[in-house]
């Protein structure tokens, strides 16, 4: 992998595998032939090992990047919040105010309940997801080859191309949805809504329950996979364009323009996906707050 230049499939495989730290079962034959006597927590050397780790494996790079971006978001906004002046605001403060007001207006006309958590949650989701998606604009080879120089074999810098991250956020929103539904409507009200909703008659309870449960489970699933699908497809196209660079000068030049065009279009996709994730979260929470 390191010496000779990789084939196309190897190149694509390399850019799609995460840096995984997990538990390899005893008796598993490592990539260098050593057989493990006991369960060992170690870095995976290739996707074969990563999948052998099964459930107890962590994508170190996605976690590190998403956590780091979250810290950057909190630090930046906290810094501005502390030094806010009603006199002559600095450029950074103007920028942050624009975002906060944009989110506030959106949440005001979408969310009909009274809950002080929703607007900050919407702001966090919008900016955090936007920052995570923004990493997709970094050229594909920059960080992985840098990391390779440091000895880290696999590295994916865009956290939102990792289904674990996006589905994790979607499940968190789902838990909030359930919590507020039960809190506002009461357990009885929530169950009544699930069983009685379309056809208000006890005979239709199985039908209602089936339809409502499918609808309820579809929300987090589509919320998470929509962000994952968009960013994964976007990153895949960046990788495919990057493969064109190795195919001679003409394709390289053509690839350069393609990369530029796709990156510019991708800026719209990035903001749009973050906005949609935020809008749907607020809409789902406001549905949870409806009290008939």
């Amino acid at each position: 992998m390191a010496g000779e230049n990789p084939t196309t499939t190897e190149y694509i495989q390399h850019h799609l595998t995460n840096l995984t730290y997990g538990k390899l079962p005893a008796g598993y034959e490592r990539y260098d032939g050593t057989v493990l006597e006991a369960d060992t927590w170690t870095m995976a050397h290739g996707s074969a090992e990563a999948s052998a780790m099964g459930f107890n494996a962590f994508h170190v790079d996605s976690l590190a990047w998403s956590f780091g971006l979250g810290v950057i978001f909190c630090a930046l906004f906290a810094l501005v919040a502390k030094s806010v002046t009603s006199g002559v605001p600095g450029r950074l403060q103007n920028f942050v105010e624009i975002i906060v007001e944009f989110i506030d207006n959106n949440v005001k006309d979408m969310f009909h309940g009274r809950n002080p958590l929703v607007a900050p949650l919407a702001l966090t989701i919008f900016v955090w997801v936007f920052l995570m998606n923004l990493m997709d604009l970094v050229p594909v080879d920059v960080v992985p080859s840098l990391m390779m120089a440091l000895g880290v074999e696999y590295h994916k810098i865009v956290p939102s191309t990792d289904p674990n991250i996006t589905l994790g956020m979607a499940v968190a929103v789902f838990i909030l949805m359930l919590y507020y539904s039960i809190k506002i409507k009461g357990l009885g009200g929530f169950v009544k809504e699930l069983t009685m909703h379309p056809f208000n008659h006890w005979l239709f309870i199985p039908v209602n329950l089936f339809m409502e449960l499918v609808g309820l489970l579809a929300k987090p699933f589509s919320l998470g996979l929509r962000l994952f699908g968009n960013m994964y497809a976007g990153e895949m196209i960046f990788i495919l364009i990057a493969v064109m660079y190795s195919a001679g000068l003409f394709f390289g030049l053509f690839g350069g323009f393609l990369q530029l065009g796709w990156a510019i279009f991708h800026i719209l996709v990035i903001t749009l996906q973050a906005f949609i994730f935020m809008v749907l979260t607020v809409v789902y929470l406001s549905m949870a707050h409806e009290d008939h």
């Binding site: 799609l16 996979l225 699908g229 968009n230 994964y232 749009l272 906005f275």
Partner: peptide
């Protein structure tokens, strides 16, 4: 963006099929 959701999920899974 909402219309794009399901086809893009299909694209994501299709690319997973093709490359993995």
């Amino acid at each position: 963006g909402l219309i794009d959701a399901i086809p893009i999920i299909g694209v994501g899974i299709a690319m997973y099929l093709i490359f993995v």
